[in-house]
């Protein structure tokens, strides 16, 4: 094997070691993430919690504000996405009903001037 071939072979070995170390052994860790990066099932469960609270207190302004931490999209869209996921994931009928009520309430909800805060 020529000297250059050996040289490039060792570069390839180094790249392989670097990738294994960087992707597997010590990958970049995200410890301070924001709720908008949550996986769809966790997002849906968060929305379900909001729906459960809304069912009890009927405070749609509070519900919209609570949904606000899931991202900059309108609360209606966030809730609708959660409902869509819940339908696909076969959530129990009682949970689907709660989510549907929340989506319906948000569709007729008008944000208070100056934001969603009550």
């Amino acid at each position: 094997m020529s000297r250059w071939l050996k040289f490039f072979f060792m570069i390839a070995v180094g790249i392989a070691i670097g990738l294994i170390y960087g992707w597997v052994i010590s990958p970049v860790e995200y410890t301070n993430t924001t709720p908008d990066t949550l996986r769809a099932d966790y997002r849906s469960d968060y929305v379900l919690m909001v729906a459960e609270v809304f069912h009890a207190d009927q405070n749609i302004d509070l519900a919209a504000r609570q949904l606000g931490i899931l991202g900059s999209e309108p609360p209606t869209k966030i809730a609708a996405q959660a409902l869509e996921y819940a339908l696909q994931a076969n959530f129990p009928a009682s949970d689907l009903s709660l989510l549907q009520n929340l989506v319906a309430a948000l569709q007729t909800w008008q944000p208070a001037p100056g934001g969603t805060s009550p």
Binding site: K6, F7, F8, F9, M10, I11, A12, V13, G14, I15, A16, I17, G18, L19, I20, Y21, G22, W23, P27
Partner: peptide, 13 residues
């Protein structure tokens, strides 16, 4: 060569 490769690998990863 190994060190250059390692640096490239970590740069990518």
């Amino acid at each position: 060569g190994t060190l250059i490769g390692l640096a490239l690998g970590l740069l990518v990863a």
